[in-house]
Design a protein around this nucleic acid. Sequence first.
DNA 1: GGCTTTTCGATGTGGTCACACCGTAAAGCT
DNA 2: AGCTTTACGGTGTGACCACATCGAAAAGCC
Lengths: 205, 205
Amino acid sequence: MPSSASTRGRGPGLHHDRRRTEIADAVLVVVAGRGLPAVSLTEVAAHAGVSPGRVQHYFPTKQKLLEAAFDRGNERSEERIRARLGAGTADAPPAEVLAVVLDELIPHDEESRAHLRVRHAFNAGALADDAIAERVRRLYAGLHGSLAACLARAGGREPAGGHEAAAVALVAQAEGLAYHVLLGTTGAPSARRTLHAALEAALAR
Amino acid sequence: MPSSASTRGRGPGLHHDRRRTEIADAVLVVVAGRGLPAVSLTEVAAHAGVSPGRVQHYFPTKQKLLEAAFDRGNERSEERIRARLGAGTADAPPAEVLAVVLDELIPHDEESRAHLRVRHAFNAGALADDAIAERVRRLYAGLHGSLAACLARAGGREPAGGHEAAAVALVAQAEGLAYHVLLGTTGAPSARRTLHAALEAALAR
DNA sequence: GGCTTTTCGATGTGGTCACACCGTAAAGCT
DNA sequence: AGCTTTACGGTGTGACCACATCGAAAAGCC
């Protein structure tokens, strides 16, 4: 087995990681468009414009394929957030980090719509698949932790249930609203306003 | 076609409706246990303890089967809410209606856990299936409308975005929290506390 | 230039699925 | 009684699925 980031040696060739990513991206397109159950080797291969054999070569099982797609989706989401926070990501003011991260959870363009559809699909999948569930839990553990830390640094008073509960509440609110936006039950501006108000309330406490 | 509630005439026999609900209930069990993609004629038939032929007879397509299950799930949920509100459902104090309905959206026993898993599964399905989406939208239109009316009757001041937006916010908060309870990321008591606080805030506004 | 390993298209395979179709039997009308 | 409709089990069918396997080409080592 090659050392992970290597592009030489006896291991995987130069384009190994790039091909994997391309295929994972194709999975995301399928999931965003027609949901998790629509994912199949042939479907993914067609969307990626490659042969089913290649998909199978890079992902020996469907499970691995879905896991890679899940990770890829989060990777893309983190990139977006980093891009919006600018260069000084690490030392951005916590209130701004909170505002950006939560806003990113509400659909605002085609790309974020697609991403949030994918997220919702995987969230549902987690309730029926332990392997996905484990990843989703890890994802939220990180997200909740980060936001709780931001809340601690930004707001003075400790809320009733602790910063962690406040962070969970904000994320839950955001995702609930996001779903209704995706479904068309409510508009994105209204959802964003509601979420912003909730954040303000949490910070003022 | 017989008049809908009829149990006689040339149409369906005595046990028609009962058999249908039995099968729909079996679908709900499958969905709660292994998600929407696990629903198949054979799987449902096995869980219902009947032959696949019978399932096919009552539901000519899988689509119809899922629609019936969706409706059946909501019917059961409404029954639960009515039961908790007691006899005078129509004229219960609006604050109590709000508290009960929202509390019912947080898992508190095996039955509600199962129901909320099913709900989440269908919500995800709605993002990939227009027929389900239409039903989910109708469901939420009714729910949001009812809760908005309760808010109007209970709280004096009109909130910033209108009672409708406040109702959407509460439902979104509840469902987001419910998912995290189902996933195990947070506990039911904490979620209930958070949701209760949000309701108080909405009523005090 | 030999050798190993990756790459990846092609084809096979066992399984499941939604649904079609048939036959029989019972129920209920007239 | 005779006819129509519902009820439903059994079986077929064409499609698709995940995955196994094979073989050839290409890419890097020595």
